[in-house]
Design a protein around this nucleic acid. Structure first.
Lengths: 145, 145
DNA sequence: GGACAGTACATGCGTGTGCATTCAATGCAA
DNA sequence: TTGCATTGAATGCACACGCATGTACTGTCC
């Protein structure tokens, strides 16, 4: 890639810091709020949402882990363990994929869908607070310790 | 906060996913590249950069940890340990603050400044690749495992 | 001065993550 | 069919994180 002149570089850095700030504010608040009220992390919610979308779209067809992976920004191992947590919590079931027995198909349980529906308004509210107005929530701009 | 109509909600979610994708791509590639070539994590680089800026701006005055904290999106404990790593690597020195002996003042070492200057072009290059064109780097869109 | 709330940083602990590796199943080629 | 590279997912391991707490220092109020 070509070198950047200093003006382009400054713009890029400013854009990056803005992105970091928004991400930190939203991610921190989501993790805290979803965790406190629903026992879900940000990524857990994200996975539940993909499963809901997958089921609604494909007429209830279950998602394979390998289909889920590219849509969630986690390593394969982290996703594997996250699914194990969801299964342990009774929100999801894992079953062997008949077509390709290496694969695992995931299905939302009733409890999983319920949990998602309950958590969703809070999730959207947090997004509104942290992304919407442009004003960052101070209590999460720097994560409290 | 008021309820969102479904259109506003969809926009918010789209914005959030875009942000997540960009952040994941940039953060993953930064951590990998800076780590491989310079032994620095993304946040380590960020802290070095604040120290460089602080020193250049204030006429070489050292930064206190409490000044640094709000600019880095880390918990106080994570920052404390990050600084310990930088000190162990010889990139930074910690000293008691004379004015307020609870505080710690940080100063960049020569090695710290050098490391920063060496890593900076790569950092900017990665930002250009992941933020610039709008095209995400596929190899990091989903972190490899 | 002495007690006490508040602040700055460090540390014990549990947990989530990525990397490397492993294991099973698949597809292909000889 | 056998042999082998590839793929999907699970697991050992090290590490960075956040939370809760601990320790040292400051400032205030009595």
């Amino acid at each position: 890639m070509a070198e950047l002149d200093s003006q382009a570089e400054a713009g890029l850095v400013a854009q990056w810091r803005e992105l970091l700030a928004r991400h930190a504010a939203a991610a921190c608040m989501l993790d805290r709020e979803l965790g406190d009220r629903f026992g879900l992390g940000m990524s857990e919610f994200e996975v539940l949402e993909r499963l809901v979308e997958g089921c609604d779209a494909g007429g209830g067809h279950a998602l394979r882990v390998s289909e889920l992976a590219p849509t969630v920004h986690l390593s394969q191992s982290a996703l594997s363990r996250l699914i194990a947590r969801l299964e342990k919590a009774g929100l999801v079931t894992r079953a062997m994929c008949e077509a390709d027995r290496r694969g695992i198909v995931l299905t939302l349980t009733e409890a999983g869908r319920d949990r998602y529906e309950q958590a969703r308004p809070l999730h959207r509210e947090v997004l509104g607070l942290t992304l919407g107005g442009g004003g960052l929530d101070k209590s999460c701009e720097a994560p409290p310790d």
